[in-house]
């Protein structure tokens, strides 16, 4: 069956639309000139300036810490929630549970951010915790957002998987906890890994929720980029953008390579 000319043309145009702006940024980042419009020669001077900028480096470190912690927390909570959705029968409050799990996905970031900030402020007033906001509060906020994504990924994997293997393990004499650790967990590991990666990227990418829930000492990379971008185009941001694109391409390439080597599919489903 032929794809048809119009859809195919749209696909090409659409892909160009998706890639051209980023490619322009990457090219500009190697421009010696401060003015983006004029090409004055190849240079890596903006990378040098970027790496001597303490503010950006500190923000990048904060972002990585927050992303790693919140992704791990979200993966733990989300895996549990995915198991609940796919494997556990009805229980009291199941509808409420599913509704709450969906809220971080449908709420605009500004509302999630504001509401969590109000929670942290109220909790500090009542219990003295968290005393001020910082890395910890961003981690909690990002984990809450990402756990829903992880839950849906894990649930999809569990639902696509027959229960035969788990039942066979029980039949062969494994008690429930052993069935879970020896069979269920290894089988959903790819989904858990994908969930962690998504949670990590979501956290690394978030500006709005982090802005609401951060404190003065916990500026994340998107927050630093945002305050710089607001002032206009900056060669340093071009360099940073190129590095970010390169690192995510590298991570994805690595993940795809591992998947293909293990004979798996690139896109789950």
């Amino acid at each position: 069956m032929k794809a048809g000319r119009i859809p195919f043309a749209m696909l090409v145009i659409g892909l160009a639309f998706l890639y051209v702006p980023t490619i322009v940024v990457i090219v500009t980042s190697f421009n010696d000139s401060r003015l983006a419009g004029v090409w004055t020669g190849f240079s890596v001077r903006w990378y040098g300036e970027l790496f001597s900028d303490r503010q950006f480096l500190g923000a990048a470190a904060n972002s990585l810490i927050v992303a790693a912690l919140s992704a791990s927390l979200a993966t733990g909570l989300g895996t549990c929630a995915g198991l609940v959705m796919a494997r556990h029968g009805p229980f009291l409050g199941r509808t409420t549970f599913l509704g709450l799990l969906a809220t971080p996905l449908v709420l605009p970031e500004v509302i999630t951010g504001l509401s969590l900030l109000l929670l942290f402020v109220t909790a500090e007033q009542l219990f003295g915790w968290p005393s001020g906001r910082g890395i910890g509060t961003i981690v909690v906020a990002h984990a809450t957002l990402a756990m829903s994504y992880v839950a849906y990924i894990v649930q999809a994997r569990l639902q696509g998987m027959s229960r035969d293997c788990e039942e066979a393990a029980a039949d062969l004499g494994a008690p429930p906890l052993k069935v879970f650790t020896a069979v269920t967990l290894p089988l959903i590991m790819p989904a858990i890994g994908a969930g962690w990666l998504l949670a990590f990227v979501l956290s690394l990418d978030d500006l709005v929720i982090a802005s609401f829930t951060s404190g003065p000492q916990s500026t994340t990379l998107p927050m630093a980029i945002f305050s710089s971008v607001r002032l206009g185009i900056s060669p340093k941001i071009n360099a940073l953008a190129t590095l970010l694109v390169a690192s995510s391409a590298l991570c994805l390439g690595l993940a795809a390579w591992v998947q293909l080597r293990r004979g798996g599919k690139l896109v789950p489903g």
């Binding site: 909690v140 906020a141 809450t144 756990m147 069935v179």
Partner: peptide, 27 residues
């Protein structure tokens, strides 16, 4: 299901549920 125990159920349901109540509903 015959392959999971009530104890696992309670933990896997309770943890995310509690988290969601505190950090999704309460806010």
């Amino acid at each position: 299901s015959a392959t999971t125990s009530p104890a696992i159920h309670r933990v896997t349901t309770g943890l995310p549920f509690l988290w969601l109540i505190v950090f999704a509903a309460l806010p």
